[in-house]
Design a protein around this nucleic acid. Structure first.
Lengths: 232, 232
DNA sequence: GACTGACGGTATACACCGTAGACTCGTCGG
DNA sequence: CCGACGAGTCTACGGTGTATACCGTCAGTC
């Protein structure tokens, strides 16, 4: 039997990942990827219809690296675990990450992860009408944070606050001045990520019906607000 | 006096915005932009050192469209206003948005917006040590939501849930099945954005010291959309 | 054993891209 | 009048994605 056509797809994706790891995302071209495995650029078109489709496949491969949560742990642990896994994958392949918001990313693996999120939110006792929105919010926060961390939105702008304050006319930025001490302090991104996820999960917990377990810590008057009514 | 070189920068940025509005972000090239105002591609290099710098300037121009909040309104109104402004700008120029997370975006206008956020959080009574993180979280949620909405992460994948459930082996996605009714319902993205911002601001309020006003006070459910109308 | 597809891959070509370098002007101060 | 200068052009180079045509090699089948 001849070697199946599908059999070289992983090889090509590996090559693409190598290129992106070594020389950045914009160094990925059909020529550079093909050359790495001794092929002609046009050979890749037997496996992917376009460069776009190849990049989508690269992203899919990345997402397959996220490990499923250990069975039998509570909903909160599941959500925490998945958040950390996403961040870990992102940190392993920082240059590829921008694809995740540029491309629609509808792949089986995304479906599976989403399903785990749905199950966890169901187990948490969140009313079903709220679940899709909360799942999207959680995903947005996790992906948004990781992407900002990796692609520089949190980077130079935030890390050199002294220079930033000096830039415009003096006294133009009273907020920055009042917070100078805090802004100069280096940031522990791990801790910040943990705090954000934790806070989001508190929010989820507050949305759960029946308050199955009254929040362990005495949280001062967190009156659950009536939801904005959605219609349509 | 000779016409200053700086004088044509806005013209070039307008041309770039037209190109991106009509033919998408990847249709922006030095050639296409220059042609639109009757110039040679190389002429642009007198105003921008590279295409990258031009795109950064385009993004900066967009951010300048966001209107400052009307003076004298409360911290919560300020934050709501700014969130909605960002979303409005994004919806006016959806194709340009991916730049905002791809590029570091350190510009004076970003500084000014951040400063307004800092001031609002200070006014809310949030302890200073918490403010930088909360500002980043708020920004991440707003930008992440808008970007997901615009660039398709919320799009095809979520909008055709029936087809998605049919894709993998039956029974592989118990979460999706349990939520089928909810997932089939069309989504009101305006309402979802409002709800997310509102929830984040509740979170901010809960972080504020002294609980200056105990939240029992009836807050108008629907924040009236900022009245300030833009002109350009 | 010869014939026939199909398949993996190649070669060539095209239109386009960002941009470096040298060039041409029209205008200005002296 | 002259030199300087700055805005803009021309040409060219190396790179890109990919459409089209082509080729050798194998699996089966007669």
């Amino acid at each position: 039997m001849r070697k199946l056509k599908e059999s070289r797809r992983p090889e090509i994706l590996d090559a693409a990942l190598q290129v992106v790891a070594e020389r950045g995302l914009e160094a990925v071209s059909m020529r550079s990827v093909a050359q790495r495995i001794g092929l002609t650029p046009m050979a890749l078109y037997g496996y992917f219809r376009s460069k776009e489709e190849l990049l989508d496949a690269v992203l899919g491969r990345l997402l397959e690296e996220i490990q499923p949560p250990p069975p039998g742990c509570g909903w909160r642990s599941v959500l925490v675990h998945l958040s950390y896994e996403v961040r870990a994958v992102a940190q392993r392949h920082p240059s590829v990450l921008p694809l995740i918001l540029t491309r629609p990313a509808v792949s089986p693996v995304v479906l599976r992860v989403n399903d785990l999120l749905y199950q966890a939110l169901l187990a948490a006792g969140v009313p079903p009408a709220e679940i899709p929105r909360l799942e999207r919010l959680l995903g947005t926060v996790v992906i948004g944070h990781v992407l900002s961390e990796v692609s520089g939105r949190f980077g130079a702008g935030t890390l050199d606050p002294a220079g930033r304050r000096a830039q415009p006319g003096a006294g133009e930025l009273p907020g920055h001045e009042a917070l100078a001490a805090e802004l100069d302090r280096p940031v522990d991104w791990d801790a910040e990520f943990r705090a954000n996820v934790d806070e989001l999960l508190d929010l989820v917990e507050r949305r759960s019906v029946a308050e199955r377990r009254p929040l362990a810590e005495p949280r001062p008057l967190a009156e659950p607000r009536p939801l904005v009514e959605r219609r349509t």
